[in-house]
Design a protein around this nucleic acid. Structure first.
Lengths: 118, 118, 118, 118
DNA sequence: GTGGTCTAGACCACT
DNA sequence: GTGGTCTAGACCACA
């Protein structure tokens, strides 16, 4: 978990998205302990306050649970994770369709391109 | 052509993408005169320097041609536009596949969702 | 709006509660502009970041709406405010009953004391 | 006597309040021996210094008496306990009335809500 | 060790 | 002017 940051989006949002992606894809399992605030801050080369905010917002969305003095853990709620997975899928695909239609492509053409394998 | 700007991307890039989209989709035809720098700057509520930069970059990519004293015009090169259209299509679709696979979706699932009418 | 802070509760929570109280009681009307971050920070003798957090959390609860470059405004949603008023009432009263019963007072005694006017 | 601690109030104050509550409610009788500092510290999972401070403050308020080598005992002064009970009652109720009036509720509404039983 | 709060101050984007 | 993000670093409470 080390990367460069795109400069056109707040870091804390990028980290949030990244962690959600890791949870949804199964790279991080239910109940797993996430790195400590300080640790992740160092890994990502970012200020601890920024990670603090990441975990706070994830907590607010109930994607993680933070226990004082112990750390931050991935939720145990499988339904929630499944729902996030579906929502992300829908979201990505709707966005693609919108973008492609703005370029004048029909849905049929989209399907065609996908099947052709690129 | 008036819109709100996403807060996390340089404005000039957003305008470039928008103009390309309009050309590729056919909203703007080959050889068409684009708004003047000053005019577009006002329309978009943006600094004229920003639009200068937009046209400069579009010119560099040969998507537009700027004629001193006359204005900026969409290229006459139909092949170029067609190629851009194909490139954008490929690019969007590849990005989708990457994003979806990062979430653990198979290509089959993607096709399924698209067919179901997202 | 100037006060001393109790030391046993985070400042940002105290300010949040205070603003909610002012909205619910009608001291602040729907749609009213709240003081700017910097202004309120000075008034309360607190760091702007602390107020920043206050407004962010109020925004998340949809109690306020923040418009970049303009300021933070009380929601226009009367139903939301009414609901908050009822929730706070219930909450305060339930807490009182719990506290009093822990001290061994009956509900009848509570009512008695209230009527007697202290 | 084991519990979780609210995060926004010094622990020693929470423990003081809890012990007073137990005395006032009659859970602890006049003259009763309280747990030793060490014992209570372990029970509550708290530093012994914290309990030291609790007993010191209770002694100062004459709610307890600490006898060297013997331990800490609840006062024998029934009047004192009765007075505390009344004071706490008054205090709680006055606070409720203040809070509710700050929200714009009339005393009548308070009584109404209480009777309705919530 | 863990997270939680707060300050001071910088830099950016938007109006 | 407005709010939004980020850093550096301090101090506290909890385990």
């Amino acid at each position: 978990m080390s990367r460069q940051f795109a400069r056109d989006k707040p870091i804390y949002l990028q980290v949030i998205d990244q962690i959600i992606q890791e949870i949804v894809s199964g790279e991080r399992v239910l109940g797993e302990k996430l790195p400590s605030v300080r640790e992740l801050a160092i890994t990502l080369g970012v200020n601890p306050n920024t990670i603090q905010r990441v975990y706070r917002e994830l907590d607010q969305r109930q994607i993680t649970i933070t226990k004082r003095g112990q750390g931050t853990f991935v939720t145990e709620d499988k339904q929630l994770v499944d729902r996030m997975r579906e929502d992300l899928k829908t979201q990505y695909i709707e966005q693609l369709v919108l973008d492609m239609e703005a370029l004048g492509f029909s849905k049929h053409e989209i399907l065609q391109s996908l099947k052709e394998g690129e």
